[in-house]
Amino acid sequence: MAMPSADSWGSSPTSPIGFEGYEKRLEITFSDAPVFVDPCGCGLRALTREQIDSFLDLARCTIVSQLSNKEFDSYVLSESSLFVYPHKVVLKTCGTTKLLLSIPRILELAAELSLPVLSVKYSRGMFIFPGAQPSPHRSFSEEVSVLNSFFGGLKSGGNAYVIGDAFKPRKKWHVYYATEEPEQPMVTLEMCMTGLDVKKAAVFFKNSAIGGCSSAKEMTKLSGISDIIPEMEICDFEFDPCGYSMNGICGPAASTIHVTPEECFSYASYEAMNFNPSCLVYSDVIRRVLAGFCPSDFSVAVTIFGGHGFAKSWAKGADVASYMCDDFVEQELPGGGLLMYQSFTAVAPGCMSPRSTMEIDGWSSDGTETAEKSDEMCIGWDVQKKGVMKDADA
């Protein structure tokens, strides 16, 4: 994935072997400011572009595109994405970015707005090129040390987990979580894919001779990304000579995709958060994502806050043709949270059966429209407004 700003960060070059697709993801949630300080409830959305740039500069990334609605602001970055809600910031960066170096500035800006920290979550998979990562991302223990220096004093203390089969070291999921009190209901789905099908990956090259596309809009349509959650308004961006990013928004719900299509280190990620799980079919979302990339391996991490009941059963519903689940882990998190992690490996050529592919497109093999296409969707979770819950158990 060639980034336009790659050469401008002389201290943080991309790996000479290839571009690191696996993202580092930081999510910080804040409690309400006193009403006399922020009577309109703007919170972090009151930050200026200059202030946002000030912490992105520290992480070594820049804004390339923006899309907003009444609930939040989304930014496509030179390396992945940023989402700013009134009481939550989610920063996701790939390559050799220094994401954790942005924390002091984010906390400084939040303090100026009288927003106290409620919780923090940091997650990532296994880097393809771990030796190319700069400090403070040279190891998970180094990352945890930095996170604890800022958030270890929260009521739960800092909690770090390395999840996955010890005999499959390339399929590890790293999570750090600390919280002051339980959060409001929220479900986040993070999906990481490697070994992309060559023809599927070619869509994300700006080279028509190999089946590529001339624009981000064309990549979005041809890959089927626009059909994963059709209600999402999409802001997409193509990189030169290859690579792709998009953010999708719908009410308080967000989705994002990032693609590094080069064959020797191909990678794609999908994330959806703040959605109402009762209005989406888990297995349909997974299949639609897979249809655009046909990876040889993928993992899914579903993080649930605010009660496990329906969301837990929802996240167990995947039935993916041509893939074998080779790991499944449930990890409880402080404050009543739950992380469900699964990894899959392809067991047959191609990621989908012909019938499954047709169903993903919204039509069954007999030509009738499938239920999930005709169902009215209600993506946003109405209670998810400010990202905090006071004086109540989640």
Rank of each mutant, 00 (worst) to 15 (best):
Ser365Ala: 14
Glu359Asp: 10
Pro104Phe: 07
Thr370Leu: 07
Lys373Gln: 09
Asp7Cys: 03
His308Asn: 06
Ala33His: 05
Ser81Asp: 09
Ala160Leu: 05
Asp366Gln: 10
Gly309Tyr: 12
Ala6Phe: 12
Arg138Gly: 06
Ala254Trp: 11
Tyr75Val: 02
Ile163Lys: 02
Pro230Met: 06
Gly125Arg: 06
Ser78Asn: 08
Gly335Ile: 07
Ile286Gly: 00
Ala209Ile: 08
Gly95Gln: 10
His87Glu: 06
Glu359Pro: 00
Gly243Thr: 08
Asp32Ser: 14
Ser149Pro: 01
Ser141Thr: 10
Trp381Thr: 12
Met340Thr: 09
Glu330His: 07
Leu189Phe: 13
Glu79Leu: 07
Pro230Cys: 05
Ala318Leu: 01
Met352Ala: 14
Leu47Met: 10
Phe30Trp: 04
Asn276Ile: 02
Ala371Gln: 12
Gly212Pro: 03
Ser78Val: 02
Ala59Tyr: 03
Cys325Gln: 14
Ile286Thr: 08
Leu115Gln: 02
Arg288Glu: 02
Leu47Lys: 05
Phe83Asp: 07
Leu82Trp: 07
Met273Glu: 09
Thr256Leu: 11
Asp327Trp: 11
Cys378Asn: 14
Ala394Gln: 14
Ala321Pro: 10
Gly387Arg: 10
Phe293Trp: 11
Ile257His: 08
Phe265Val: 03
Asp227Leu: 12
Gly152Arg: 08
Glu183Leu: 14
Phe30Asn: 03
Ala33Ser: 12
Glu376Leu: 13
Phe275Glu: 00
Met246Ser: 12
Glu142Pro: 03
Tyr177Asp: 08
Val90Asn: 06
Lys385Pro: 00
Gly367Ala: 04
Phe344Cys: 02
Pro169Ala: 13
His258Glu: 06
Ala253Gly: 04
Ser223Val: 04
Ala209Asn: 11
Leu196Thr: 04
Thr188Pro: 00
Pro354Ile: 06
Asp391His: 13
Trp314Asn: 01
Leu154Pro: 01
Ala253Asn: 03
Thr188Met: 13
Thr256Ser: 15
Pro252Thr: 13
Cys42Ser: 15
Ala111His: 11
Thr370Phe: 05
Phe140Asp: 06
Gly251Asp: 12
Gln384Lys: 15
Thr179Val: 15
Glu23Trp: 01
Phe328Lys: 11
Asp326Tyr: 14
Leu109Val: 04
Asn69Gly: 08
Gly309Trp: 11
Tyr267Phe: 14
Ser102Asp: 01
Tyr176Cys: 04
Glu262Leu: 13
Thr62Asp: 14
